[in-house]
């Protein structure tokens, strides 16, 4: 709990001044774009992503397909990757030396990777729910996504990036994810 001090923050400015106060019809010369506009570009980008996702939501797979030896090998490899990442994360944290200096760029890249991962995951979900995938395919798909997820966690640990850092805060629009 604080009392107001002399430092009016950007939030206060946005909160009070820009959209509030009595309006006088007439010679308004500075028209501050609604601050939402600053984020409009990003919003447009996001809309087109989800549209693309909608359009591509078709599945052509065969529900009765059995696991091939290649599949089994693939699954085992994914499981090894997941275990490896899982074991690695606490070790990196124990070292207590995340590479903070390179954090900024890593954060941005990982955020985008995470966004793409989430979009893929949604698509996968849609297909699972449609019931057109065989149990083997679901198992493979789930493991692949989990492997990517664990890998992202591992990189997060390396750079000392928290879960909630993996996001872009779009201000008035809320979060990217």
């Amino acid at each position: 709990m604080i009392n107001k001090n002399d430092n009016v923050t950007l939030v206060d400015a946005l909160d009070k001044v820009l959209e509030k106060g009595a309006v006088i019809n007439g010679d308004i010369m500075i028209r501050v774009a609604d601050v939402d506009l600053v984020f409009l570009g990003l919003r447009l980008m996001l809309t087109s992503v989800s549209k693309a996702e909608e359009i591509s939501g078709k599945s052509f797979s065969n529900p009765d397909k059995e696991l091939t030896p290649e599949d089994i090998e693939y699954i085992e490899r994914l499981q090894r990757e997941i275990r490896k990442a899982e074991e690695n994360i606490p070790k990196i944290i124990d070292l207590g030396s995340p590479k903070k200096t390179e954090q900024g760029l890593a954060k941005l890249v990982l955020t985008l990777v995470e966004l793409i991962r989430k979009l893929m995951e949604k698509e996968a979900f849609r297909r699972v729910k449609r019931g057109t995938l065989s149990p083997a395919e679901i198992q493979k798909l789930g493991l692949s996504l989990k492997a990517v997820q664990k890998k992202i966690k591992e990189i997060q640990a390396i750079f000392g990036i928290e879960d909630e850092d993996l996001n872009l805060d779009l201000g008035p629009l809320g979060n990217l994810m």
Binding site: K16, V17, L18, E19, K20, G21, A22, V23, I24, G26, D27, I28, M29, I30, R31, V32
Partner: peptide
């Protein structure tokens, strides 16, 4: 006091008084 919205500019005193 009534705060006025940011960016409100009037041409001159006469315009202000009219408003």
């Amino acid at each position: 006091l009534i705060p006025i919205r940011f960016g409100t500019i009037l041409k001159d005193k006469a315009r202000l008084e009219e408003t």
